[in-house]
Simulated assay, not measured.
Amino acid sequence: MKFRVDRDVLADAVAWAARVLPTRPAAPVLSGLLLEAGDELSLSAFDYDVSAQARIEAEVAEPGQVLIPGRLLAEISRSLPQAPVDIVTDGAEAVLTCGSAEFGLVTMPVEDFPTLPQMPPSIGAVGGGVFASAVGQVAPAASRDDTLPMLTGIRVDIEGDSVSMAATDRYRIAARDFVWRPERPDTAVSAMVPARVMVEVAKSLRGGEVSIAMGDGVAGFESVGRSTTVRLLDEQFIDYKTRLSAEWSLRADVRVAPFIDAIKRVALVAERNTAIRLSFTQGQVLIQAGGGDIGRGAEVLECELRGDDIQIAFQSQFLLDGLTGIETESVRLNMESPTRPALITDVPGDAAPAFRYLVMSLRLS
């Protein structure tokens, strides 16, 4: 095998594919990137649960395949000088040359690399910006604790041209609705997709559309020459929609950017996992934290309150995760009492909010 490729294009593709390589592979070959040179150059990684494949242009002199240690190739690729990269196989070695730099990389047996799963049938597509925004809003609420796999996923419910995404770690629920372009108008699908994979797909988007595929317990995402497949989680999930549709007697609207900045400032004196206290009165909200061994902080912002005065507390990062998902100038906090969860939404005007974030309150001491 012998080919030449642009240095930046190679480094970008290798970094993208290598992100799914397991830290502790079950077999040595799973730590490798499979490079296949033909009409184009493809780079593939697979750990039996998640696959990633990037396709890029290359000048191929001799077609072929080679399996190279992926993380090492990623480190080398991003450190190369600005010059075309030549890779040629020579026995059990892949020789990489870039300018005056040369590396001889010991290859692994291609025949031991598992066959990549087939991409399931496409069920529709959505703009990359919408997809990335929705995942960014919902994913922070997914759990990082693998002991309950259901909580580590993003629930995707598709009904015709409507898509709902949701995630929860039991302490908050984040949900986002958006419109997409289904392959069939009667499309109806529900699936649990690992959140970490959705986040990586969203990070890699560079415009265009994202094609979404589902079938045989596998989800697939494809955009701009890059494709990912992932094994789905168990479909079991909470009935989150009823929890987000409660009636609220109190409502406070606050400009979101100053609100986020004030919470971050005040939280500097809050010990880990302690509360941020919000005191809403007519025309203003008092943000407070601390009071222990470190110190205390407070800041006042204007707000529009409808209902009685209320003091309520939240874990600061949980509150910030909800606020950073807001895409309107102001955020709306829907509340019932200091001991009940609060619903954070956009200030939507006449339309129903597309993003909803339900977060548990903390007991005030």
Rank of each mutant, 00 (worst) to 15 (best):
F131Q: 06
V135H: 03
V135R: 04
V135N: 07
G136F: 01
V138E: 00
V138W: 05
V138C: 10
A139F: 06
A141D: 05
D145L: 08
T147R: 01
P149Q: 01
P149N: 10
M150Q: 14
T152C: 10
G153P: 03
R155D: 10
R155F: 03
V156R: 01
V156F: 08
D157G: 07
I158R: 00
I158S: 05
I158F: 09
G160K: 05
D161T: 05
V163S: 04
A167C: 10
D169H: 09
R170W: 14
Y171S: 11
Y171P: 08
I173F: 01
I173M: 01
A174Y: 02
A174M: 08
A174Q: 11
A175H: 12
V179G: 10
R181I: 12
E183Y: 03
D186R: 06
T187E: 09
T187Q: 07
T187Y: 12
A188M: 15
V189N: 02
V189F: 03
S190N: 05
M192E: 06
V193S: 10
P194V: 12
V197N: 04
M198Y: 05
E200K: 02
V201N: 09
K203F: 06
S211Y: 05
A213H: 08
A213N: 01
M214L: 08
D216I: 05
G217I: 11
A219E: 07
A219P: 06
A219W: 04
G220N: 09
S223P: 11
S223N: 14
S223Q: 14
R226T: 04
T229L: 03
T229R: 01
V230E: 00
R231C: 01
L232A: 04
D234N: 13
